[in-house]
Amino acid sequence: MDNEKYTDINGKAIALNYQRHSSFCTEFTVSSPKVSIGKVMVATCFVWIFAYAVFFFTDNTAVLSSAIIITLIGMMLYIHFVKIDHESLLVIGSLGIQLSSSYASGREHTSFIEMSKIKDIVINEAIYMHQIIYYLCILLRDPADTSAVSSVVPLFQSSKPRLNCLVKVYKSCQEIISKC
């Protein structure tokens, strides 16, 4: 474990943990910052002030109660489907790579890619919104033509760590992949 500070592409602090289970198996976990109370307050206030403005002109109390329900449901959906708490990458030499992301509500989404399908892991550059960023991705082998790449699986899509963090993960992954 090292003490280097990592941030995501917007400058927010993130944490990178990695566990070496053996020389062939390493698990990386990137944890994003928790939902900030300020952000929740701003979102809630925004909806409620808007609802109150509508109520002021319509005098219909249903508007206010629906605003409360909308914020509650919205928050539930957000932590269940949008907000990802941490993403992990489990690399097992000769077997494959497991990607899992766990949502703030506790829901987990896991997928596994066999080593035979993986061509390589690389760091690539892409234009994302109004920025140009580096990202780590897995290149999948084309079953028809082994030298071609059929598709690309981007990693750490939600936390979007910066280059120094990606390089660290990349080097360890390459170490494991090159051994098998």
Partner: peptide
């Protein structure tokens, strides 16, 4: 929004 020092040098 995105300070210069947050951008990775290519």
């Amino acid at each position: 929004l995105v300070p210069d020092q947050v951008m990775d040098r290519a």
